[in-house]
């Protein structure tokens, strides 16, 4: 694990008067997988959305490779190309085929060569097990398949970091596995990722580091996921984890 890729310092986020994130600090190193967990409404998703400037921030800064990511900056498109994001509801473009979804940004934004991008797209689709679905429309796919396409759509941009925002939360249980397998394979290949999830077993398996977020604050941070899940240090994390037991 190498140098710092993403540096978040004193991040403040408010919606009107409501404070969502208070003075958040985090460094993500190249190749690291950081998993953010916490109760609903604790600000996890907003946190991820601040990192690629889908939300403006009221204080602090987000640096990628030492360069600020800001919603109002003129280089926001260039910065977002380095930050891949996959959403809970997949959000493929319904009027485009699988291939059309994947090719849009590399061709129109990065102006890459069509043949080269197509070759890469086919290869990536093969890796996620969807080689034969390239000409299907999103409505012809299952949720798990859509989410795998969304991952490919993000990967083809060659992002330096991948943000995954509860990517299995909208899936039927039997489809969660196929998506998480893809993410596990990415982690094995050294992909830097910041993951928000409610799948605790998955978090434990994939995380290099766990952040427990509550009320817009990092309540507990642990570089040892196994220890965190077995013996959390704070009472609030303990309570939260207990809510997953039956």
């Amino acid at each position: 694990m190498g140098q710092t890729l993403l540096k978040i310092s004193h991040l403040h986020k408010k919606f009107g008067d409501r404070v969502i994130l208070k003075d958040l600090n985090l460094e993500v190193k190249k190749g690291e997988v950081v998993v953010v967990i916490g109760p609903s409404g604790c600000g996890k998703s907003t946190f991820l959305r601040c990192l690629n400037a889908l939300e403006d921030i009221q204080g602090g800064e987000v640096l990628l490779d030492g360069e600020p990511v800001r919603k109002d900056a003129s280089n926001v498109s260039a910065m977002r190309q380095k930050i891949g994001m996959v959403f809970q509801s997949y959000d493929l473009f319904p009027h485009k085929t699988v291939m059309g979804n994947i090719l849009l940004a590399p061709l129109k934004v990065q102006k890459r060569d069509r043949q080269e991008v197509e070759r890469e797209a086919v290869e990536l689709l093969g890796k996620v097990g969807l080689a034969d679905r390239r000409d299907d429309y999103p409505r012809q796919l299952s949720g798990g398949q859509k989410q795998r396409v969304a991952i490919v759509r993000a990967l083809i941009m060659h992002p330096e970091i991948l943000l995954l925002d509860e990517i299995t939360a909208a899936l039927d249980p039997e489809m969660v596995h196929e998506v998480l397998q893809v993410v596990l394979a990415l982690a094995k290949n050294g992909r830097t990722m910041l993951i928000v999830t409610h799948e605790m077993a998955f978090a434990r398996a994939i995380a290099d580091r766990i952040l427990f977020l509550e009320d817009g604050e990092i309540v507990e941070e642990s570089g040892d996921p196994k220890a965190f899940f077995e013996k959390p240090q704070t009472e609030r994390a303990r309570q939260f984890l207990r809510s997953f037991e039956y």
Binding site: N52, S77, I83, F87, D91, L92, F93, V109, Q110, R153
Partner: peptide, 12 residues
């Protein structure tokens, strides 16, 4: 979210 997923890919 359609606007957002396009923007997240770097589309202006």
């Amino acid at each position: 979210i359609q606007y957002e997923s396009a923007e997240a890919l770097g589309l202006v």
